[in-house]
Design a protein around this nucleic acid. Sequence first.
RNA 1: GUGAGUGUAGCUCAAUGGCAGAGCACUGGUCUGUGGCUCCAGUGGUUGAGGGUUCGAUUCCCUUCAUUCACCCCA
Length: 419
Amino acid sequence: MEKINALKGFKDLLPGDSERWDWLALTARRTFDAFGFSPIHTPILERTTLFTRSIGETTDIVEKEMYTFEDWDGKQVTLRPEGTASVVRAFLEHRHQMPVLPVKLYYQGPMFRHERPQAGRLRQFHQVGAEIIGDIDPKQDIELLSLLTYFFKRIGLDNLTLEINSLGCPVCRPPYREILQDFFKKKLTTLCEDCNRRFHKNPLRILDCKKESCKTITTDAPASAKHLCTECDEHFKTVQQGLKTLKIPYQYSKHLVRGLDYYTKTAFEMTTQNLGAQNAVAAGGRYDGLVEALGGPATPAIGFAMGMERLMHLIPETKGMPSTLQLFIVPLGESAYQTLFPILYSLRKKKLRSEIGYSDSPLKKQMKQADRLNAEYVLIAGDEEIAAKKAILRNMKTKSQTEIGLSNLINEILAEIEG
RNA sequence: GUGAGUGUAGCUCAAUGGCAGAGCACUGGUCUGUGGCUCCAGUGGUUGAGGGUUCGAUUCCCUUCAUUCACCCCA
């Protein structure tokens, strides 16, 4: 029979990594909780139009990366490629059951994009994200950025760079876009092929081209933050002032842009040097127009998402270490097993991580298994011990052994191991 | 979608146009009811798959699949 493997870009998370993964998710939960965010879980499958309308018809995600198919009843459905659209949809659908504005929500779960896998990029990947819906005040931007910064500090990553920029709004972005196009118009012949394509589709994207030849040209390109309307300009200044007050280090990145169409005003990224080409660990920004675009009342909002797999590459191996086996029970013979198995059950109910060997295996073999499982203690009993109503408790590290009477075995073991 | 690299034992990797190897892991012995360490022995491969050149291909050529990295894009 032919072996069946996981699909390209879909990964199993095995013991060892799973514990770190859970630790990361739990730490996120606790941190977001402290900042006043509530959890939300939305479906993985949504109507396709939710994403075409929110992310943007002409983005790569919508054009060629979504897992879209026709449901049995003929509906066009899509595996979510990101989380914000679903959260906003759920907000609108249940807004009368939501607490007063602003609503602060966080989520975590799998996202799907059909891309060619590479370092830090999978087809099924996982994001943790947070959204603040219903307040245009820059105080919310500051709060969200403080949450982001603190979370990274809490998981032991303090060498990341917070880059911020302002992309403007429907008032000031179109004129800026024209200024930018004017700037690049004379330089089209020296820009790369991709940038020539970007010139028409999304000229802002030229600003973060990776080619050196383009980079030298873009150095002098006009910055969006220098062409903001009064409202956006004040907003951006207040955000920066707030970060300074909280002593949150950041870098103004005049050419930082966002890939999804719905972003406005504040845009930001957390980047690292240790992840290969995919250097963004978290990213987000304001999306004041999205709620309205999805059929709701005009409602400003801001949010971000972090890539779990990318975080996993960065956090120390020691975080969330798998718990060690505290006790391995060695029964020598069937009658010993019959006596010891109920004891194992009792110990497990007392939350002692414990295991039992095969009663028909020789002592040597069972000891070897205990050693391989990294057991801290081993409890040994054969016919002799059972007849004498006792068992041997061995400390695998110190090699010291004590005899324990069966009558009070459970308490004595717990005292020895946990005491 | 585009480009480059890599596919040999469970894992990490050698080698050669002429019998396919090592280390680790595994099994057993050394050590009959006491693990790790030592020493000894053993199991394990259609060299990713298919085709071509050749007396002979794991090696050279073509195709294909898988995988990695990069571009694109993005968390």
